[in-house]
Design a protein around this nucleic acid. Sequence first.
RNA 1: GGCGCCAUCGUCUAAUGGUUAGGACAUAAACUUUUCAAGUUUAGAAUCGGGGUUCGAUUCCCCGUGGCGCUGCCA
Length: 461
Amino acid sequence: MDKVKVRIAPSPTGNLHVGTAQSALYNWLFARKNGGEFYLRIEDTDKERSTKEYEHGILDALTWLGLKWDGEVVRQSERMDKYKAALEKLLAEGKAFYCHHAKDELEEERKEQEAKKEPPRHVCDHKDSEKGKTEGGIIRLATHDSNTLFKDEIRGVIVFKDALFGDFSIAKSLDEPLYNLAVVVDDIDMEISHVIRGEDHISNTPKQLLIYEALLEGPPPIFAHLPLILAPDRSKLSKRHGAVAVVDYKKDYLPEALLNFLGSMSYTFSKEILTREEMAEEFELSKVHKSGAVFDVKKLNWLNSQYIKQLNNLTIKQLTNLPEIPDAAIPLITERLEKLTDVGNFDYFWKEPNYDSNLLDWKGFSREEIKNSLEQVRITIEYWDWADKSALRLLLDDLGKKLGDPAKSSNDRGASRGLVYWPFRVALTGKEKSPDPVDVAVVLGKDVVLERVDVAIEKLT
RNA sequence: GGCGCCAUCGUCUAAUGGUUAGGACAUAAACUUUUCAAGUUUAGAAUCGGGGUUCGAUUCCCCGUGGCGCUGCCA
């Protein structure tokens, strides 16, 4: 087999879509597995909608994901001469022609066809006439309806019965090529061996095959159509479903997690969590799934939490842009972090907590009892040997036993310990939920702990 | 309407002619706990329908049904 060369071809009319990212991943894996090359081609022939900002965004997103392309970025806007040459060749050989029909004529034709329940298409009567050779109007490929088929590497043989798409358009003019033409010219020119793209391109394939036939003597590339990524309602995932751009995930997710998720969505690897190198090793194009997969953010979150747990302290600080997080707090935080920005829920490790005094209340106990508990905790802390964490736990447990109303707590030991631990945790964190307050106290240090207990006592006074 | 693709737990999927239909996420419960977002354990949860082929179909074939995609002088 010739060298494997694959590409992704996003158009810079929006941010990098997660579907395109998945397609990029599979192309990348396939190239990596087969010692091939992975190219990036920007399809910016639509001057109205393409922007440089989106192009930069796409490059950034791909880089963030770690899907580095080989060679230079190819831009269709810089290759207009190639398309023009191809068009001139097709025109000269009578394989393409100028269509002079006006838009309203075509619309008329379409309406009639719909009324007759025929497939909508334009079969042009200019194609073999002199008029078809006269410049002006759009350029169409001269076709003859027939069956077209191709072998899809993922789906097997796909047959288009009576491929009835008429003389379809390939360029608005010599200098304005349309999608199908540009794609084929580029794929030929870049010597693409495998076209791996979304399922939504299946219906374009027979058209492109006809262009290959008209332009190329050798065989066309091998095609493989990936399943679509679906929204929870099983329609194609699009902007109206919320976060669909890779960049939307950047603040909360690790690229490794997103990549792992996208990869596992339409392919079954030997394990749940694996690096892209491990994925590449196992990857076989023919084993990619056929059916669309719903984007389940819960599973992404879970994967993300698994990756976050493995992060080292420095990385966490950089990623969250919070260098002030104490090192000792990091294991306590990463243990329960699903999204990076959730780190804000743990800001009591580096900031004075702010909370309502009602939060200090515990079960049926009175304000006086709570206050007394905190005062006792304060004394315990002051006398406590700071190095011994388990000693503090024992001391606080004992305090709980002492403070609890024997009538209330004889059968409810937990409640009396709660009288100690609940206000203590709130004093330290200002939250209902947090890691073990003793663990938090150790991270905070004696001075801060005493300070915060004092603040809490103050609030109750 | 035309053409095409697809069809196993809620979700992602494994099993391709013989399994108690397996796993992961999610959910629920129990345990643990001062609380929980963490941990451990357990549970419930699926082969779209109808015909074939076969001793036997999740699996192969056909027909329905459903979902989705495409149907541009967008890509």
